[in-house]
Structure formats: structure tokens, C-alpha cells
Amino acid sequence: LGPSLGGLLIAGAGWRAIFLVNVPLGMLAFALAWRALPNEGRSGPGRSTFDTPGTVLLALTLAAYALAMTLGKGSFGLLNLGLLAVAALGVALFIVTELKVETPLVRLAAFGDRMLTASLAMSVVVSTVVMGQLVVAPFYLSRALGLDPATVGLVMSTAPLVATLAAVPAGRLVDRFGAQPTMIAGLASLVLGTFALSSIRIAFGIPGYVVPVLALSGGYALFQTANNTAVMGAATADQRGVVSGLVNLSRNLGLITGASLMGAIFAAASAGADSATPSATLLGMQVTFRVAMALALVALGLALFSRRAGGKRKDLA
């Protein structure tokens, strides 16, 4: 609903409406969570203390990284470098804190599991690619193809619609063939989709965008389902909440990085006498998805590596 509703709101009421609409939706989500989610926190003598120092450090570190990736209005200056330095310092302090506290927010020993580390890294990379598509495609559809905001929103709805429809079949594929083969198939589809978008031509029109997105979004649905299954299936009962949080964290880091990195690549590639011309926009689109294809190949390599690591671990067992 997001792209299509957003396009209609922008066309009818202006861009501020896409933020205002989230106020009632957010209140509804809060009310549903308050009413429906169980309150089953541990209590009694065995109850562990909450890692407040680690939580504060993690929040400040993520805030610094997010600001470093988004401030500057298209340029990367001293402020951005300073914020990245703060984020790096925050990571170091967070690690030191987690090694010292009695009940750490994140058990760092978990990152010794190659499959978990690879899964989280793949989640960052794949989310970067998917966010790049969401950021760059509207410029291509409006500037190169000349579509109005409402039509751009409807065309952009292809990606989440495909991912939604593919989710349950993806789950059945995971149950039948296993998480690793399904994940590799999804990443291969992601590579194919990004390759097609890197070769796009204005003459292809709307189908030239929609068809590659079918492969990209379908691959994303396969990857997400398989990766979540693999990660959560390997988590112990007392660590499922933290591991789930790490998966969400890795995905959000990818979304932040994709919005800034892929947007910056598009802006740099399409810069010229008039970056808003169809030819400049086309070039920016092609270059951005060449980078996206390289990232998708990195994710595919990680998936193959994690499969080998898992196979060796089974052999040793």
C-alpha cells in the first residue's frame, strides 16, 4: 500500500500528507500491540538485569551512523566523517561494555558462529540493494519515462506486491528444500533482477522496469524467508529475542546504507549539465544497479560460504 497510497497522496494533497497519514496508522499499531501482545517477562530471583549501558551505547552509535549517512544534502563532509568516527568509537565502547556486564544485551560469542555472522552480513547487503531500488526507481520512472506521481506510485507497488504474494510460497519452499538452497535461489534471482535493471533502456517503457523487479522482489522474498528461518532455527530459546533483534538491526542498517549510498551513486552518475534529463537519469539508473548487482553477488558468495561452513560443521559433528 505504501508506494501506491503515497503516490496518490502526493498527487492530491502534497508530500506532507505521506507523513501525516502515519499518525493514525501508528496510533492504531500501538493500540493493537498494547491489546494483543502477551506480557510474559521473567520475574523472581532468577530474573536477569537489563543491560542499560549497552542499550544506551547502541542507541547513540546507531544514531551517529544514521546521521552520518543522511546529513549533508548530497555531500559528504567533515561533519559526516566526524559522525562516522563517533559511530566507530561507539562500536568499540559497546564491545568493551558487553564483555564486562553480567547480562550483556548481545552475547558477542554468538558472532563466532560463521553461519549467523554470514546471515547478518547478507541481510545488510540485500537490504542495501532493495532500498536502492526504492530510492532510485522513482527518479527513473518520473524523469526518464515521464510518469506522474500517482502512476509512479502504482508502478512502484509492483515490488512489495510481488514480495507479499511470494512470501507464503517461499515458506513452503524452505520447508521442502531447506533454508540454504532456497536462500541461494533467492539471491541468484536478485542478481538476475539487478543485472536486468542495469541494462534497462527507456524504449522498454514500464514493462522494462516491472519485469526485472519481478525477479528482484521474488528473490528478496525467498531470501528473507530462508534467512530468517536459518537464523531463528539455530537460536536457543533464551536468545531468540536478541537474535531476532539482530536480524532487524542488520536489515535496518542495510536500509539506512542503501538510502544514502545508492542515492549518492545515482546522483553522482547522473550529474551533468542537466541531471534531470532522461538520458542522464538512465545513466544514473544503470550505474546504480551495476553496483547493486555487485553487492548481490557478494551476498550470493556469502551464502555459498555459509553453506560450506555448515556442511563442514555437520561433518565434524
Rank of each mutant, 00 (worst) to 15 (best):
E40P: 12
A85T: 14
G254N: 03
G208W: 06
I18R: 07
G193M: 00
P24H: 09
Y220H: 07
S189Q: 01
V231K: 05
A13F: 03
G254H: 08
V23I: 11
L154V: 15
R35K: 06
I18L: 11
G12N: 13
G263R: 01
M232G: 01
V174E: 07
A163Q: 06
I200M: 08
L249C: 13
A203D: 12
L105T: 09
L173I: 10
V91L: 05
L81S: 01
A109C: 09
L78A: 14
P38C: 05
K312D: 14
F223T: 09
L246Q: 06
L71F: 06
P212Y: 04
L300N: 09
L161E: 01
P38R: 13
F266T: 12
V101F: 02
R42L: 15
G245K: 14
V242F: 10
T117Q: 09
A167T: 11
P138E: 14
N228A: 13
T225D: 08
S142L: 10
P212G: 05
L28V: 04
S199H: 10
V243R: 04
V210Y: 11
F76E: 13
A66K: 00
M115N: 12
A226S: 10
P181K: 05
L58E: 12
L89E: 08
G205D: 12
F50A: 12
G72H: 00
V21Y: 12
G54E: 04
R290I: 12
V243Q: 09
I184D: 02
R16M: 11
L120Q: 12
T103N: 01
G132V: 06
G311C: 08
L249V: 07
V136F: 02
S250I: 02
A13C: 03
G74D: 07
G2W: 00
G258E: 12
G218Y: 08
L192Q: 07
G218F: 10
